[in-house]
Design a protein around this nucleic acid. Structure first.
Length: 299
DNA sequence: CGTTCAACCTGGGCGC
DNA sequence: TGCGCCCAGGTTGAAC
């Protein structure tokens, strides 16, 4: 379930590839290949990327964006244009420099010319058990269209209380549901939404409209603190999830989880059993003792 | 404006 | 032991 911390960790794990030149791109032949949503067709990616240099490795929300140099020759349509490979891991996608967990679910591999160290082969693979992940190849205009400010709000790592309030404060939606809206704020998913609301002491079902100014500040602070800590611990690898770092290591932030997937277990702060509710068809976990519904403007 | 549901997928866990 | 069902949740898009 890669959310902001997991994708940020993948992003950092690819840094050794910066500056490398692409030798080949392969989409392994498989009946399952078509489940990779790839715009344009895989053949175009295979043809357009070799000889380009990987110049930038960045994250936008939960997406990884690999910036490729303009081609010196080759395909006329893409010549002299920078291209961006946008990878959305969604539920089970992994971006790896280490060998993938199985060959079966490898959706794409990129081989790079080795830089300086001839013994070492350099490669990147996109592995995705469930095949919900997507790969797109776009130019700078396309990148703004698919991942620009119209599609993704400001990054959750840099959110302020004022911006949160401005973007969500007039909504009647439950705050937990609103936090998952990538057009409002980019990067928060189902797992971190529950954890963030716990740390902010806000009940997940409270309407955005009922949150007071000081609560938006606390929410923004909790968002930054939880996500920064999760990035520092390389994301969350739960028992039922497949997330791994680019080096195929488990994350460690699950050790800090207070409420997520902990229904019935005592809150470490007040010992009240954690509750699970369903909002917008997704599980929400919270502590009924620490996260009080009746607060805000009319306390 | 909002919610609800289906679709895309695999595999772990559970009840029978 | 094994079959069928539910569930996990990121995103899109349609229906209401």
């Amino acid at each position: 379930m890669p959310e902001l911390p997991e994708v940020e960790t993948m992003c950092r794990g690819l840094s050794r590839l910066r500056g490398a030149v692409i030798r080949a791109v392969v989409f392994p032949k498989s009946r399952r290949l078509r489940s990779v949503v790839c715009r344009p067709a895989a053949a175009v990616v295979t043809r357009s990327l070799p000889t380009r240099r990987l110049e930038t490795i960045a994250r936008r929300g939960k997406r990884l964006v690999l910036g490729m140099s303009a081609a010196s020759g080759g395909d006329a349509a893409s010549k002299d244009r920078q291209l961006f490979l946008v990878i959305e891991p969604r539920m089970t996608g992994l971006v790896l420099v280490a060998p993938p967990p199985t060959l079966e679910h490898v959706r794409m591999t990129i081989a790079f010319d080795s830089m300086g160290s001839p013994g070492e082969s350099m490669g990147l693979s996109f592995w995705d058990r469930r095949g919900l992940g997507t790969i797109s190849l776009v130019d700078a205009c396309g990148l703004e269209r698919v991942s620009g400010p119209d599609r993704l709000g400001p990054d959750a790592l840099e959110i302020s209380g004022a911006v949160l309030c401005e973007r969500l404060g007039r909504s009647s939606r439950a705050i937990k549901v609103a936090l998952l809206d990538q057009r409002a704020i980019a990067g928060i998913g189902n797992l971190y939404a529950s954890e963030i609301l716990f740390h902010a002491g806000i009940h997940p079902a409270v309407s955005c409209r009922r949150l007071a100014g000081e609560q938006w500040s606390r929410l923004a602070a909790a968002t930054r603190e939880v996500l920064e800590e999760a990035v520092a611990m390389e994301g969350s690898t739960l028992g039922d999830a497949t997330y791994r770092t680019a080096e195929n290591l488990a994350g460690r932030y699950q050790q800090r989880h207070v409420v997520y997937a902990r229904k019935g277990l005592p809150c470490p702060r007040c010992q009240t059993p954690v509750r699970r509710i369903v909002q917008a068809q997704r599980s929400t976990f919270f502590c009924p003792g620490c996260q009080v519904a009746k607060r805000g403007r009319r306390g």
